[in-house]
Write a protein that binds this DNA or RNA. Structure first.
Lengths: 220, 220, 220, 220
DNA sequence: CATGAATGAGCCTTCATTCAT
DNA sequence: GATGAATGAAGGCTCATTCAT
């Protein structure tokens, strides 16, 4: 995660692309915020990740808090967009609701496997007390959208006679719970040299159970 | 899994059973840690919750960090114990695996509905960077135990012919994912005057799907 | 101005009277504000004058700005009070307006000869840009009161036939101008080892001219 | 008085006659120094007033301090020159000492009514602690010269039998006090939408009192 | 046991100054 | 000449921790 390469020789400050600067800083901020928490992260360390000095960071962000917000904002857009895209294609071709659900969860989990994106939810969880707006923002931009999309698909499945009529709200949460599990496990509880929960397989297994359950049918 | 034993012998200070006063302090610490994060919490505010002054806290805890550890320790013991209890009774009476799973999840979710206990996991998630030992401790004492218990039940169900043979590890995580969902939703993302996710109903619905899936059987 | 005595041996922190603390701090603030300006004064240096450490200052004042305001406030009360007292006694006994004016100016200049009080106006002048409220406050509490008192006396003198009818507003300012001169000269322009402008003599001479002018009467 | 000569030879950089650009910069510096104080003024803001960027300022001035000195230097020359001019004409024509005094004070007050010049003394007062040389310089270049000129006129008046023999040093200060009053009042204490002290009228009234006093002669 | 005044390390933030372009 | 990105010293303020009472 460190960009050791950049600090090579005396590559002078003004030679690097300034356009990428904010993003480079946010990369550093992500690392520090995640490993030290917002309060514990030191601006100087964040700057160092981008090969910059303390003061330079303030040319791009007004404050530490500003950086946190930008960081969350940056992670939100891509995932939020894809989410709706999938739901929009319901009924097109002849994709089953089951396939659509699989695609959606796969996409979510896939995106969140990217460290730059998956590290954000735990960060938000940790800072929810200090920055409730951040949690609210993330809920609206990501979680609500995902839920809405899942809802559409599940209701579509029910209408098609493909799914049983279950409490949709709870069903959605069961699906999303797996994503939470994956994120938190891989970012918080996995041991340093232990294999992470592979989203491809885990989500597929999860969907499978979601669809078919685990109980052996009474008369097969 | 390997250092379960170690911790038992060492009996670290943060697992001790404190008397009344320390507990009052920890109640205050919980409130402050959760709303401000570990770094943001001020000892003076914690003390105030217990009707004490700053200095007095130090008669009971060596440091702020010590308090965090004690806090987590305090929340761990009860839940960890119950966990095993249930798995121990497998095969007794003639409880089905399905019933056992329901009982276990219900118990977990029930406990974690208690704010004093449910607030801990988000706290740990937020401080995992600063205190990896805490996450490790919690994994070992709570999550691993829960998983082990769930595993036993699921394997019991499979052996009984009650459950299909699924990837047990993933199935366990699907179950636990719902608990994560419940905790995080209720502690982080729920809006101030919005109804919390009721664990009784949600967990029941979740288990139902887990057992039977949501797809309408081909030929019923 | 330094309190070298206090720092003697290891006289522990908690042994000194805490009641006097704020005043001691303000004494230090005065010294530093006057010699370095508000912005240039370092809290640590201010604290050192009172034999305290940086942090302790914040037990008594919320901020540097707070200290400045307290400092001005402290200097204002005594002078503002005396001012009115004198005007209140007009007509009592058979004091002439001339005597009253002399008493008033003498009192003002006398007070402002005390470094702790005379150093404030130049400070306000220097910080008027940053803290206009301070200048406004000082005008109202000190200058306006002084002017009002002088006005009463001068009008009394005119009514008595003791004074010629001059533009009172301007006359007042002529009187006060001398006080300004005295303050600014002694605090800003006087050389390090040059005699300060002695208010007793200077104000007396000034009043004398004010009363009688300097022109030799045409036919004496 | 003694180092008037020195300064003339040394011709310090801050008395140089800058070209157009530097003057524009100083105009900006004046505004910022006066409204924020020396320490509070930001080079970037000063530059903006002149339509320049931060770095450019350093092509014309070595440092912020250098700008302050240049600023004061710039304001000093014109007033200092006029001062002597008047005194030089004493005895020419048949101007009375009274008229001469009036002319001199009128000129001083008139000049200082120009914001660019009148804003300087309060600035010096505020920064006297940080830059005692500035106060000393101003005293020598402006105040001492004004005093010397006034002294000559007053002594001339006494010799002519036009003035009574008063303590000349004090009398001078009484005169100058009015100028101080005018500057400080108009630059510091006047309210935002309040009329400034009009130097024409105020100085005329002041001189009138100075010459004739305010007491009604005993037997007129 | 309890207090709270005092300490001082620590960090965010500002801004004069530099310098490659 | 002019620019503005970059630097880094400096200082206000916070707060965990100590300790005399």
């Amino acid at each position: 995660m460190q960009n050791l390469e950049e600090n090579r020789n005396e590559s002078p400050k003004w030679r690097r692309e300034p356009k990428k600067r904010p993003n480079e800083i946010l990369d550093g901020a992500l690392i520090e915020f995640c490993s030290r928490g917002f309060a514990g992260a030191r601006i100087e360390d964040i700057a160092k990740h981008a090969g910059l000095s303390k003061g330079t960071v303030y040319l791009y962000f007004d404050s530490k808090e500003d950086m946190l917000k930008a960081l969350v904002g940056r992670s939100v857009t891509p995932i939020a967009q894809n989410m709706g895209d999938i739901a929009d294609h319901i009924g097109e071709h002849n994709t089953s609701a089951a396939e659509l659900l699989t695609n959606m969860l796969m996409m979510m989990a896939g995106r969140l496997s990217d460290d730059k994106i998956g590290a954000i939810p735990p960060l938000i969880i940790g800072e929810a007390g200090n920055f409730p707006e951040l949690a609210a923002f993330y809920r609206e931009e990501v979680i609500e959208r995902a839920m809405k999309a899942l809802k559409i698909v599940i209701e579509f499945g029910i209408k098609q006679g493909e799914f049983r009529k279950e409490n949709t709200e709870f069903a959605i949460r069961t699906l999303i719970g797996a994503v939470f599990m994956q994120i938190i496990w891989n970012n918080i509880f996995v041991r340093t040299n232990e294999k992470k929960l592979p989203h491809e397989e885990f989500i597929r297994a999860h969907i499978n159970i979601f669809l078919n359950g685990i109980v052996v049918p009474k008369e097969a």
